[in-house]
């Protein structure tokens, strides 16, 4: 096994070009488990922890551009006010030890449907920036992840950053696990209200081959809000509409039975989480606690 440690983005892309398919490593939460358990042994590993460019985040054309090497801990401490949904999701990731090392770029690279950072990215329509020595391209997150643990990254490409708008309204993230900490999601739900564009972004995690945007649920609730002029009036969303939002989210899920939970349970829980997160977010929009 070859170990490469580029010190700049340029070097990283050259290393990846010279060793197509080389496995990038940052926080090690996936790569090291494979190595320690003797499951996969890549021929080449590229350590990205020394590449300063991917550890930065900044504002660009009114959007946030966040380096793939920003850790969950930093997402909480540095981005908590700008991207509360992502911060909430990051808080549910593992332990302080894991959050200090694990990165959102890693979640994108692994493309696990259970990746906690992914639903908030979908709910705010994030765009992923990938690059190779051939050039740079930007891909909406929903098109970037195409299957369980599959993304559209070419063998010579690396993820450099993701781009998403600063929160302009309340955001929520909720996740089911069978204990009260340190769990991989049985299922999860991310939600973002976008009052300026008068839209609602939602995403189901860990209940399908990829994170799933429940379009029908989004459309339905957007219509309800429009219908009753709720963005401006900030009145309550009728309980029946909240329920219906949950049902539609639940119907959008494509869960399987596995060791962490049954498909039926996942489908049910997605509905409950959808209803609750929307309730909390809307209450916040209204300026009501809860």
């Amino acid at each position: 096994m070859q170990f490469l440690q580029p010190h700049s983005w340029r070097e990283a892309l050259e290393a990846r070009a010279a060793h197509p398919g080389a496995r990038p490593i940052f926080g090690g939460t996936d790569v090291m488990v494979d190595l320690n358990f003797g499951r996969k042994r890549p021929e080449t590993v590229i350590d990205l922890t020394r590449v300063p460019e991917i550890r930065e985040w900044n504002r660009e054309d009114g959007l946030l551009r966040i380096g793939a090497g920003v850790t969950y801990t930093r997402a909480i401490t540095e981005l908590g006010n700008l991207l509360p949904g992502l911060a909430m999701a990051s808080r549910t990731v593992g332990s302080p030890q894991i959050r200090n090392r694990g990165t959102i770029g890693g979640n994108l690279g692994s493309a696990s449907p259970a990746g906690d950072a992914l639903p908030p990215l979908y709910a705010s329509h994030a765009v992923i920036e990938v690059a190779s020595t051939r050039g740079t391209r930007r891909i909406p997150v929903g098109q970037f992840i195409i299957g369980p643990k599959r993304n559209v990254l070419e063998p010579d490409e690396l993820i450099i950053a993701f781009i998403m708008p600063e929160a302009e309204g309340p955001q929520q993230y909720a996740k089911i696990g069978t204990r009260n900490a340190m769990v991989i999601a049985v299922c999860s739900f991310g939600l973002a209200l976008h009052p300026e564009s008068r839209s609602v972004g939602a995403c189901i995690g860990s209940a399908g081959p990829t994170p799933i945007q429940p379009r029908d649920a989004e459309n339905f609730i957007e219509d309800v809000i429009e219908e009753h002029d709720l963005w401006e009036s900030r009145a309550e969303i009728p309980a029946s509409a909240l329920d219906r939002f949950g049902v539609l989210a639940s119907e959008a899920a494509m869960p399987i039975d596995d060791v962490r939970g049954s498909a039926d349970y996942r489908r049910h829980a997605v509905g409950v989480l959808a209803r609750r997160t929307l309730t909390w977010a809307w209450n916040e929009h209204r300026g009501v606690a809860g």
């Binding site: 170990f3 440690q5 490593i25 926080g27 090690g28 939460t29 790569v31 090291m32 488990v33 190595l35 320690n36 590993v45 350590d47 922890t49 302080p96 030890q97 894991i98 200090n100 090392r101």
Partner: peptide, 18 residues
């Protein structure tokens, strides 16, 4: 658990070269 450059990490998830 150890400190790596001042940060709490799991040493099992750090590849030696890192």
């Amino acid at each position: 658990s150890v400190y790596l450059d001042g940060e709490l990490v799991c040493a099992c998830l750090v590849l030696a070269g890192q």
